[in-house]
Structure formats: C-alpha cells, structure tokens
C-alpha cells in the first residue's frame, strides 16, 4: 500500500491517469452535447408522470435538432420551465402555429390533466426554445444510481472517495 507515495514519479503518473479519465468522460459528454445540440443529451427520469413508458431511474437519450421536421405533437420532450431548473419529461399534445413561435402544450401520459399548472405564472404554452430535447432512445434502470445519490447525500463523498482510492492504489 501507498507504494505510489514512495515513488514520486509513479505518483505523478497515477495522478495524470486519474485526470485523463475525468477529462475523457467530460469531453465525451460535451461532444455528445454538441452533436445533439442539447445542453443535457442524457437525462434520468425523476418522476412517474410518464408511466408506464418511463419509470424513475430510466435513462433517456435526447436529440434537439430539427433536421427533417419540426418538433410536433406526440413527441416526448424534455423542457425547463421559466426560472426553474428542473427538467420535465412530458409528451407534446397540442401545437398551434409553426416555427420558433409555435405554441406547444405538454402532458404526462400518467397525469389526468395537462401541464398548464406546471408552467410559470402567466405562461400558457411552451415555445421551441424552452425544450432541451426530444426523447429518441431508452435504457431502463441504469440511471437509478443518480437518484440514490441525490436522495442519500452521504453516498456521494463515500463513492467519490472509494473511486479515488481505487485509482490511486491501482499499480501499473
């Protein structure tokens, strides 16, 4: 143990290795962001309002470019309400007008009523720029770890510490 500490050259190499892993993950995330034109190309479902299609912890892949057609009714979109930072995954059920000023109304499949009450005060409809992507791909359950991390805050430092320890203690 702590063999790296005895050899400063090895310790430096391990530190570089750790930095490489972190920066690779970051660049992959940002690269995906550029390709999909979405600030958050992968999101984790946080609520049950789209059940049975999506449950808590499912991973969704987003696409935010309108190459072939405009965002239209029936698409499942992720949007941010004005001045609130919680992304919501719901389906577009009404669209009035075309282009960037089209008025969009969303609704969760599992909710009885539409999202008018979720929107900001005085906001009756969404516009295209409120949307950060349409759902195109789906992997179940994989994102559950992030929900656990946010619900049990003590897990975060424990996991980070363990990961750091493993990387530092790894010989090679």
């Amino acid at each position: 143990m702590l063999s790296g500490m005895a050899n400063p050259r090895q310790a430096a190499a391990q530190l570089m290795n750790f930095g490489l892993i972190v920066s690779t993950a970051f660049m992959m995330w940002k690269g995906l962001s550029v390709i999909t034109d979405s600030p958050s190309p992968i999101v984790v479902v946080l609520s049950g309002s789209m059940e049975p299609a999506f449950q808590r912890g499912d991973l969704l892949f987003l696409w935010n470019r309108n190459i072939f057609s405009e965002t239209s009714v029936g698409e499942i979109v992720v949007y941010n309400v004005k001045d609130k930072d919680i992304p919501i995954v719901h389906r577009v059920v009404r669209k009035f007008g075309t282009g960037s000023k089209a008025k969009l109304l969303t609704k969760g499949d599992n909710n009885l009523s539409d999202d008018t009450e979720l929107y900001a005060r005085g906001q009756d409809y969404l516009v295209r720029k409120d949307i950060i992507g349409s759902v195109v791909g789906f992997i179940p359950f994989v994102g559950y770890v992030t929900i656990m991390l946010s619900e049990h805050p003590w897990l975060k430092p424990v996991m980070l510490g363990m990961m750091g320890l493993v990387v530092v203690l790894q010989r090679e």
Partner: peptide, 28 residues
C-alpha cells in the same frame, strides 16, 4: 400565407396506452 399542405394546428383529442403483457404490472 402558409402552403396548404402545412397543418399549423394540431391537437390530441383521444389517446390510449396499450401495455404489453410483460408491462401490465406497470399500468396505472
């Protein structure tokens, strides 16, 4: 004036969720 083939208003009037038997337990 929009081209006549562009439907600029669209609203869902009816929908339904049909679960596969393997997803029946998730239906609300």
């Amino acid at each position: 004036t929009l081209p006549s083939n562009v439907t600029s208003n669209q609203a869902v009037i009816w929908d339904t969720i049909i679960t596969s038997p393997s997803a029946d337990h998730l239906a609300n």
